[in-house]
Simulated assay, not measured.
Amino acid sequence: MTIDVAPTPWTGRDDGPGVERRRWHHAINKPTNTTVASDASMSGGVAIIGFQSDEGVRRNKGRTGAANAPAAIRAMLVSLSAPAELCAQDLGDVRVNEHAMEAGQERLGHAVAGALQTSLLPIVLGGGHETAFGSYLGLAESGAVNGRRLGIINLDAHFDLRSDPISSSGTPFRQIAELHAATGEDFTYRVLGISEANNTLDLFHTASQLGVKHMIDEDCGITNLPAVTDFVSGFLNEVDAVYLTIDLDVLPAHVAPGVSAPAALGVPFEVILAVCRQLARSPKLLHVDVVELNPLFDIDNRTARAAARLVHAIATEHTALLRETPTAPASSPQTGIELL
């Protein structure tokens, strides 16, 4: 796999030895405390990949700064408590040079494909939502979806189905839909948390034409959680493989002020957390990305903390799933990493 920036050591609070005192920085790039140290023991966990990009946000006329998101999320994740059996690799970052977004998306795709081919669950820390197209390229390259129906579920206030001639953070799912149309594949895309006030009628029309089902933010309150989980269950029943993408602007502005487009309403954090746990409990989940954090506009790291909590929940559920349904390891996720 190809990355631009090598991972740096994770350090944080240390309360002493023992799995009961384990934190994320103890787990990153190390075998679990409950297994014999070996390359094989690193397989089957999660892979953290950063995507330092805000070029798509700039093109979409948003507030730039998302290129700094991977470091901010890592900083909030480092000292969170880690499950005793968590296997986690930090594979470093893809860095997007100005006006070179497409090349960066291709390199992200290679990194995602490499992680998938070594039986890891890639969790990409974006970056603007242009991250999604790079993630999709990785899923396609890896062969992990071959012969299976892929479903994309987006937790987002926006459809990101724009048909602009220049790709941006607002176009990734339209680009994916066009690729599917060219090959005759079904395009199964669901969005939870749509803001009616922040999507034009044209975008709703496009979503309808493409068969995109969605729930608006007003229907995603905590009292309506059963309807939300039913929506997610219905999605899971339709597909064989799942790509989860989380745009942090789906959250209320007081929870996630550090985004390009803060939400006036948003979906309660408890609902988003429950959905992430529900999806991470499914063996169909192949890939996750968390995008649109802009540390320049964050307040007391609220948005970065929310992002880290979601990553933590997904990794915890995924670790529990692996423990219940162990699979033979493929190969070390460290094999074949190439630094540019």
Score class of each variant (00 low, 15 high):
Met1Tyr: 01
Ile3Gln: 00
Val5Tyr: 11
Pro7Val: 08
Thr11Arg: 12
Gly18Phe: 01
Arg23Met: 03
Trp24Cys: 09
Ala37His: 09
Ser38Asn: 10
Ala40Glu: 15
Ser41Cys: 12
Ser43Asp: 02
Ala47Asn: 05
Ala72Tyr: 01
Val78Leu: 04
Ser79Tyr: 06
Pro83Val: 09
Pro83Arg: 07
Leu86Thr: 03
Leu86Ala: 04
Leu86Gly: 00
Asp93Lys: 03
His99Ala: 11
Ala100Pro: 05
Glu102Lys: 05
Leu116Val: 06
Ser119Gln: 10
Leu121Gln: 05
Thr131Gly: 10
Leu139Met: 15
Ile153Pro: 02
Pro165Phe: 14
Phe173His: 04
Gln175Thr: 05
Gln175Arg: 15
Glu178Asn: 08
Glu178His: 05
Thr183Glu: 14
Thr183His: 10
Tyr189Val: 01
Arg190Lys: 13
Ala197Ser: 11
Thr200Leu: 10
Thr200His: 09
Asp202Trp: 06
Asp202Phe: 12
Gln209Val: 13
Met215Ser: 13
Met215Phe: 07
Glu218Ile: 11
Asp219Met: 13
Gly221Lys: 12
Thr229Ala: 06
Asn237Asp: 15
Asp240Phe: 07
Leu244Pro: 00
Ala253Trp: 05
Leu273Pro: 02
Cys276Pro: 05
Val290Ile: 15
Asn294Arg: 08
Asp298Thr: 00
Ala306Gly: 11
Ala306Asn: 07
Ala308Tyr: 14
Glu317Thr: 10
Leu321Phe: 01
Leu321Trp: 03
Thr327Leu: 15
Ala330Lys: 14
Ser332Trp: 07
Gln334Lys: 13
Thr335Gly: 09
Ile337Gln: 00
